[in-house]
Design a protein around this nucleic acid. Structure first.
Lengths: 317, 317
DNA sequence: GTGAAAGCGCTAACAC
DNA sequence: GTGTTAGCGCTTTCAC
């Protein structure tokens, strides 16, 4: 017992014993057994975090935000990757819960029925991040992707564009990209316009894919003056297709993406985009979750909505 | 006991009881307590994985490779991010070991003395990945970055280039980038050449940084016909700087990076690079680690060396 | 095929 | 300030 107390830095242990214990621990290379600690104390320092992908910089940055924010709290994040697959996600959630984490963070609002049940029944704070277009289980931190699409459509129409195309990918898997697209289209229709054409692939978004789909669209000869992409990677690929085709961006053709990734700043043309607050979402969800672990939160404290800022880049002339 | 056996799918339980137990578990929303399972059975299904960063696509892909490969094994990866900081890394390692994982994977060979001691004393297989230039604790899967630098220098000299510059970043933190640079320089010297100039920033590599450093170098008016970058992101940024300056790549100026990232394929010019086998490293290290968990491995089975293939892209004329 | 006993390595609660 | 007792939720072992 004295050793246990000394190692935890608990009060009421004599200086002499503290030193003795610490030295002995050092000597034998003692490493706490967290399994026993947690089982005994009925509490862990674990926070489960499930994201759909890590190759996508967006989630890498959310995780970085989470890592940073959690640093001083004594909690430890445990990451899981669902590959945009609800069944995989459910398995991961089940597995994480079996480690009795003190909080959970999952991406988006579209979990399986079973996943929602598991999370709701776990008796711990649960946060859903990135998206707010839907009903949350508990804590919800993110932005409206439908609105993001609408806002971009609105801004582009204001710039005088009228012949719109959409280029995206894997919309069946990436729900949030789909919501942006739908918001975009809805707003166009409100303005009396509609998409002239679109290209949607099943693969995941990437720069080469954006380039390929754009090249294809340009070659088809359809007359458009603006392309809205599912995200910045795709839009950057589009830029290179236009360069190869000798088309002036943004003068003759305006390209717009989503996320406001850092690498856009290095491109030859500053494309239009909307900055998603990725690190901030990570930071804030941890802040709220840690509070929720301490004591129950009022409904209004359990919801945080960000409004991504549109950046028209070189297109704002 | 019967319940425990039924839930684990163990043999020797009557059909009737299996069904009864499963139904009851479903009904009350039972979730295994892995803390108790692992404490009791003296074994976990955890594999600790420590990487320096996740914003860097390279590590995101290694982790993806690990995730894929581990899928069917019943093991579960637990990821930690060290931020290129040996002290943070040590804390993470210590923390992970306290959960009694059945194996550990860490990035690079440059752990702190204490970290090495912890890992070596944990009594579990330990794999160090990405780099092989140094002494490994146990399992080692990766490539020689010094050789990668040398090979690229060799290839570029063969193309007739002679006035070399180097542009890199955060070399004090990114040991492997430093090793490539040193290998590169050593090979140049072997060929009777040396770096005409170099630009090295403290920030982490990024496309905008590559662009800025390259623009600066171009403006300085130094005469070079080839730039070797710390990696592809930096090189791509360099490409945009040359485009802005109206310099023909690769004719007048050859740009070379490292990693062979997918997005290079979307760029206006296919830059020179060397493909690092990122997913493969993830896949293979899991294969070896899982074997090592089953039974001790011979020294030659504990080491796997990859030889990155040089791709000169449009520079190979 | 099922159950009883012991124990994994810790901590909570209480006595001294 | 220190030690004792009991127990966290499982699994292992052995008896029946």
């Amino acid at each position: 017992m004295t050793a246990s107390r000394a190692l935890r830095g608990a009060a009421d242990v004599s200086e002499a014993n503290i030193e003795k214990v610490l030295r002995a621990a050092e000597e034998i290379g003692y490493v706490t057994n967290h399994l026993a600690t947690s089982l005994s104390s009925q509490t862990t320092n674990l926070i489960g975090v499930v994201v759909p992908s890590m190759s996508n910089v967006v989630f890498a940055e959310v995780l970085a935000g989470i890592s940073d924010a959690i640093q001083q709290s004594g909690k430890q994040p445990v990451f899981g990757i669902s590959n945009y697959n609800a069944e995989v996600e459910q398995d991961i959630i089940r597995d994480m819960l079996s480690w009795r984490p003190s909080g959970m963070i999952v991406t988006g609002l579209e979990q399986s029925e079973q996943s929602r049940k598991l999370l709701a029944g776990a008796g711990i704070p649960v946060a859903q991040i990135m998206d707010i277009d839907g009903e949350a289980i508990d804590i919800n931190v993110g932005l409206s992707h439908a609105d993001a699409g609408r806002d971009m459509a609105c801004a582009l129409m204001k710039l005088g564009r009228s012949k719109f195309a959409y280029i995206g990918s894997a919309l069946n898997k990436d729900v949030r990209a789909r919501k942006r697209m739908e918001g975009f289209r809805a707003e166009l229709e409100k303005g009396g316009l509609s998409l002239v054409t679109s290209r949607i692939d099943d693969e995941f978004s990437s720069l080469p894919l954006g380039r390929a789909l754009t090249a294809e669209l340009l070659q088809s000869g359809v007359d458009v003056d603006c392309i809205y992409y599912s995200n910045d990677d795709m839009a950057a690929g589009g830029l290179f297709a236009t360069m190869a085709a000798g088309i002036q961006v943004p003068q003759r053709l305006l390209l717009a993406g989503f996320n406001g990734l850092e690498f856009l700043e290095g491109l030859p043309v500053r494309l239009a985009t909307a900055r998603s607050p990725r690190r901030q979402i990570g930071k804030e969800v941890i802040r709220i979750l840690l509070e929720a672990i301490k004591h129950p939160l009022a409904p209004e404290q359990r919801r945080l909505v960000f409004h991504p800022e549109i950046d028209l880049g070189d297109s704002s002339f």
